[in-house]
Design a protein around this nucleic acid. Structure first.
Lengths: 200, 200
DNA sequence: TTCGTCATGTAATGCGTTACATGATTAA
DNA sequence: TTAATCATGTAACGCATTACATGACGAA
């Protein structure tokens, strides 16, 4: 029941269209919530009906018209109320972890490929996160930022996202290594089967 | 559509009743999937109907009877097939992260409490994970275990669970610190508002 | 005597994913 | 000319949560 609040939390940073929200929530950019397009359009309609966001039709030339959504005062109140409710720890769900758990029982070829492609995605995501971090800090140190910045919430969630991504990358490399050692690689030397991208 | 595979992956380690599975999936013990009681009983019924698990009624004295579920050969095949399908990266969803993101806009009192109780839970979870790890290693080093153990899958997933829990604990402490510094504590000195449990 | 554990389910409601549906502009 | 981007939705189906429902045993 928190998609509505995730949307409101995003609109705190400024108005956006359903299309823009789709990209933030669907792509890996959103490190705090995930949602699909139909969900977002449906949720925005409900939020508007209950007065928590206000939409404005913007007519464009050469492009389809768009509806820019803005959070209302009632919307901010709703966020405050949400923060008062207690929610219990987040539920973990990962297809990939299920597969790794049974890695000894199955043919690991396909799993190796999957982990490799996830490694590429994770490295790209980490780089994107670090770019956002640099843009936020603008030369300031971590401590300076926390002490002086007007808003620290987005920075703090980003920090967790970065830490998790780094760790996931290290773990993926370890698992790939284990698979390689257990099932001696059939790849000719000089052609590494998984990327050796450096994380700085 | 992967709850069925998560259940099968658990039954690889030996037969279990719906009740036992409930505890593994519902409590924080399962570091790779989460599911609720009604879901599990429903899924087990479906799995049995399609022959991927076989249930045996066990009559007990002094306690309700139970149905012990065991994975079948067809069940193992289903896992193998599942490993061949590609699944895309896991979707993140966390109420708590949503709240932290808007921490500057809301009253942080309730959030502070929530983070504190999550810290306690996370520390306990980490200790439980580390106890399982010690039991698995039985004195061997990480490398020895990976080289010689018959099955390494459960160990590898546990490793990620441990790493994530450690990091989450560190992050929670950081956020609590930020809240404390920004809204000078109303707690009298000598009575810390959040636990200072050590993670070794 | 009250609470926790063992043990299994159903019913109602709400959340999430996939597929369907359309159509103009711009860059390769 | 093919694909990507901009832009918004509906419909069908399946997954997940919460509440309902029951009942005996053992420990505090």
């Amino acid at each position: 029941m928190a998609l509505r609040h995730a949307v409101l939390a995003t609109l705190i940073d400024g108005p956006a269209t359903g299309y823009e929200l789709t990209k933030w929530f669907d792509a890996g950019v959103a490190n705090f919530w995930h949602a699909t397009r139909p969900q977002l359009y449906a949720e925005l309609a409900k939020l508007e009906a209950s007065g928590l966001v206000a939409g404005t039709e913007v007519v464009q030339q050469g492009r389809p018209n768009k509806r820019v959504m803005e959070i209302t005062d009632a919307g901010i109140d709703a966020l405050d109320e949400f923060a008062r409710e207690t929610s219990r720890p987040t539920a973990m769900k990962s297809d990939t972890l299920v597969k790794v758990r049974v890695l000894d029982v199955i043919d690991p070829t396909a799993l190796h490929e999957e982990l490799t492609s996830q490694l590429v995605v994770a490295v790209a995501k980490l780089e994107a996160f670090e770019a956002v971090e640099a843009r936020m800090l603008r030369g300031r140190t971590h401590d300076e930022y926390l002490a002086r910045a007007r808003r620290v919430g987005p920075y703090l969630t980003l920090r967790l996202g970065i830490a998790r991504e780094r760790e996931y990358i290290a773990w993926l490399r370890e698992v790939l290594d284990v698979i390689d050692r257990r099932r001696p690689s059939t790849v000719p030397p000089g052609h590494p089967i998984h990327p050796t991208l450096e994380v700085t």
